[in-house]
Each structure stands twice: as structure tokens, then as C-alpha cells.
Design a binder for these strands. Structure first.
Lengths: 250, 250
DNA sequence: CGGCATATTGAAAGGGTTCAAGGGGGGTGG
DNA sequence: CCACCCCCCTTGAACCCTTTCAATATGCCG
């Protein structure tokens, strides 16, 4: 996004940071980021990475696959409130808030890298400009939840679903995973139901409607958008809330 | 909350900060907070303080009354996603994100104090520990939105309404505005509808049900909780997400 | 070629909406 | 001090989006 292309830009960490920062990273800053000691871990589908109530001493970044933030009702009903793609650091908040108010789990298979809080704190002390970038990343995550809130509160199932697909295609596009507005989409229908606040059965019918409207194809975990403008219109989608430098990266 | 009682603790700013900080403020820190140059402004009910798309050069704190964060659909439907009470600083995010993705308006009459970003930045540079407090305040705001999201997505109107009342009573309790679990509640029914993602008519019927269950009284903008345990149970309310030091301050 | 998870569809029920009309309550002016 | 009026609240009835329950189909993997 910003700056010139070094080969290290392939690193999701750096890619994400550069897409958010309001300045170009110095070589030192980039090197320090890449030097963070990571404990890479592979998760299977539908495993929790961290859980509500945890008091983590580390946070993690997604390298491959998709994770989701969710909360559950005492009655066991689940609400997904964000998806996390390569480069995202979903629980930076644990740096400042001791106990987690959310759980983060995988959707499909997922590779993540854990970093000790101490290492992050040392990095931020050494490179204060990165602190601002983390702020921005966190605030953008919060903005996304707010847009989801508007979505669940004030749009019908059809528009909600369309909105989710729009966001996904855009965000995966940022990290190069949605060429031609088509992407891998590991979520099964009950999973989408939890994200949209509707039932699995209704997810099915809504997807059918979107297909019949000629907006998308969805088969074998692959989403293809046929009519981007139509999908955006159905969703009333405006990417402003994503705070992107390039609002249409696919 | 934390620390001993100085007379300055009456200042909502300080009160809120102390309820969030993990340490006791030094006299210098407290003095610096109180020395922030404020431009006090009185708003009437249903006015916007800031609007989506704005690029503010200042942020503001609520001193009296209640404000709310909301977004609107292109079709004009409104979703309220947070209420702000005395001591809250709803738009600190504008320090880091140039353009606002939300609007913040008043509910009843409301007195707020504006502070220039530069003044805040200078304060944080001089007292780095306060930076951590602001982080925590912001993250707690985000946690509240997530709980609201669970609420809207996965609970029925009855539980949602109960949950909102629980949160209000607790949060107003923190700043001393809900003795005996009773408080002023300036929101009219259509306003509550926008916060819960339902229609005004249904708000009315839901309030009636809560009254008939003997949980609350609500008349002339005054909410009285008769059966706190019952209300919490109806809402499945767990105050953990508020990250309070005292989880039951009313 | 099973077998199990996921997707699909039908029919009936329900929570919430919509439209429409009637009933307070409190502030203002006479 | 009372009357009037403007909001706001309250209630009824029909409708609709979404849920629920239940059954069938499809696809993938060993």
C-alpha cells in the first residue's frame, strides 16, 4: 500500500502495518517488526485460540486462514462480531486490559504467531511511532464492530449477508487474497448464522436469494462476486469505516 | 473508586479516570488533568455534537446529561451503539483516526467540555502513565459495543431491554447518579428503539412486560429497579465486560 | 461405495413490524 | 388556576420476516 516494495512486504505483519500507518516505515522499524520472536502455531477449524476470561501474557497475529471474535450468551447462543484475516492482530487489547471479554476462535485451519507482551512493549518503547499504528489498528477494529452493529440492528438478512460479503472481499483484497473479487471463504452456513444474528436455515435461504439475484456464486467454500456494484447496493456498503488508504483494493 | 477522597474527585474527568486506572493518580497527574483548557458547551436534546465524516481537531468529555454514539443506514435507519455519561470521553479515537465513522448526539440536555487535541497530546507526553489510562478507557468502550452486539444479535427484545437498563444503572452508579438503583433516564421510547434495534411500538410493549413482571418502574424519565436480581437474570447480565474495579457500585 | 457433515427445502408457528387510533401529562398562556 | 395543546405513551389488529421442526438431498473423504 504505502512505500516501495521490498520482498519483506510479503510478511502479513508488515503488510497490515503499512496499510494502516500514516507514514512509511523506516528500514529499522520494518526490521524490528520482523525480528519479533514469534511462536508459530497451527490450529484446526473451530478451535479457540483464546477464551473469554483468559489473562494472556502474549498476543497473536493471524498468518494464514481466518479467525473470528465471538461472545456467547449464558444460554449458549453465539455471536461472531469480527473476522480476522492474515496480518490482523485481534487481541492487542490484552496489552492493556488484563482479562479478555471475548473469545477468538478459528474458522477454517489457521496459522497464527504468538508474541509475548514484553516483546511488544519493548518494540513500542524502541519505536514510538509504531505505537500510533497499533492505536489505529485497534480503533479500526472497533469501527468494524460498530458497522456490524448497525448491520445486525438495522438491516434485514439479505442486506446483512451482502454487507458481510462486501467487507470480506475488500479486506481479503487488501492482503492480496481476493483477486477478481473472489476468495476462499471457510465459513459454513451455521457459522455465518452466528455472524449475522440469524438462523442457519435462514442463511441458506438468503444465500439462495443472493444467487438468484445474480450477485454471487458460493460453492465449496469459494465466494465469487459477479455483480460488485449490485452487491454493494444491496448492502448499502460504504467502505469508509474500514479507514483504508485504497478503498477498493480487490 | 481508587484512592482517597479529595474534593476534586467530584470532577467527572478525574472520577472516571480513577475508576479506570490501575494505579492511584499522583497529585501532579490530577492537577494536570484539571488544568486542561476546556471549552464548556451546553447542548439541547437531540443535537449532534460531532457527526460522521467530521475531522475534529478536538475531543470532548461529557459533564452532565447523556450522549449517544450512533450510525445511520443510507435509508435513514438509526442504530445507537453506546450511551455516554458524566466523565466519559466518547471520541478520543479522533486523536488517532482523522475522520469519524460515527456521530455522537445528545439524548437529553447535555453539558460537554471540548479539549484541543494538542492539549491532550501535550498532557500525555508530560504524563505517560495517563496514556495507558486512555487506552484502557477506549478499549472498555469497545468492549461495551461488543456486549451490545451480542445483545442485539442474540437476545430477544425483553432481555435486550433488561440488559440496557442493567448497564445504565451500573454505569450511572459509578459516577454516583444511581442511588438505590434508580436514575434519571432521558431517553424517550423511539430513542430506546434505536438503541435496541426494534420499533418504538415494541419498546412500549416490552417495557410494559418488564413492569408487569415487577422488575422496574419507568415514569417521567425516571427508572426505578425494584428487583435487581430479577432484572439481571432476565438480561443474563454479567458486568465483567465493563471492567470495573467495583462490579456493583449502585 | 458407504457414511457423515453440510446444504436445501417445506410447512407451520412466532416475535416483531406496520398502520392506525385513542389516551395521558406537563408546560404555557390566558 | 385552569384550560389547552403538543408530545409522548399506549393499545389493537393484520401482516411479515424469521424461526422452528422435520425431512430430504448433496458432496466429500476414506
Amino acid at each position: 500500500m504505502t512505500g516501495t516494495l521490498h520482498q519483506n512486504d510479503k510478511h502479513p505483519f508488515v503488510r497490515k502495518i503499512e496499510s494502516i500507518a500514516l507514514f512509511t516505515l523506516t528500514d529499522d522499524e520494518r526490521a524490528a517488526l520482523l525480528a519479533l520472536p514469534l511462536q508459530m502455531t497451527q490450529f484446526e477449524a473451530y478451535q479457540d485460540i483464546v477464551r473469554e476470561g483468559d489473562r494472556p501474557a502474549r498476543c497473536f497475529a493471524v498468518f494464514e486462514g481466518i479467525a473470528c471474535t465471538y461472545k456467547t450468551t449464558l444460554g449458549g447462543k453465539r455471536q461472531v462480531m469480527a473476522y480476522h484475516v492474515a496480518g490482523d492482530i485481534p487481541d492487542i487489547q490484552s496489552l492493556h486490559l488484563k482479562v479478555l471479554d471475548i473469545s477468538i476462535g478459528t474458522v477454517g485451519p489457521c496459522r497464527v504467531g504468538f508474541v509475548q507482551h514484553d516483546a511488544v512493549r519493548a518494540l513500542l518503547r524502541a519505536f514510538p511511532r509504531l505505537d500510533d499504528v497499533l492505536w489505529r489498528a485497534t480503533l479500526i477494529d472497533a469501527a468494524m464492530v460498530r458497522e456490524w452493529m448497525l448491520n445486525t440492528g438495522r438491516r434485514d438478512a439479505y442486506a446483512r449477508m451482502a454487507h458481510l460479503f462486501c467487507e470480506l472481499v475488500i479486506r481479503l483484497g487488501v492482503v492480496g487474497l481476493a483477486p477478481d473479487r473472489s476468495c476462499e471463504m471457510p465459513m459454513i452456513q451455521p457459522e455465518l448464522a452466528d455472524a449475522l444474528g440469524i438462523t442457519p436455515v435462514h442463511v441458506n435461504r438468503t444465500i439462495r436469494d443472493l444467487k438468484e439475484a445474480g450477485l454471487i456464486t458460493l460453492r465449496s467454500r469459494r465466494l465469487i462476486v459477479h455483480d460488485w456494484e449490485g452487491l454493494k447496493a444491496a448492502a448499502e456498503f460504504d467502505p469508509a469505516y474500514l479507514h483504508l488508504t485504497d478503498p477498493d483494493p480487490a
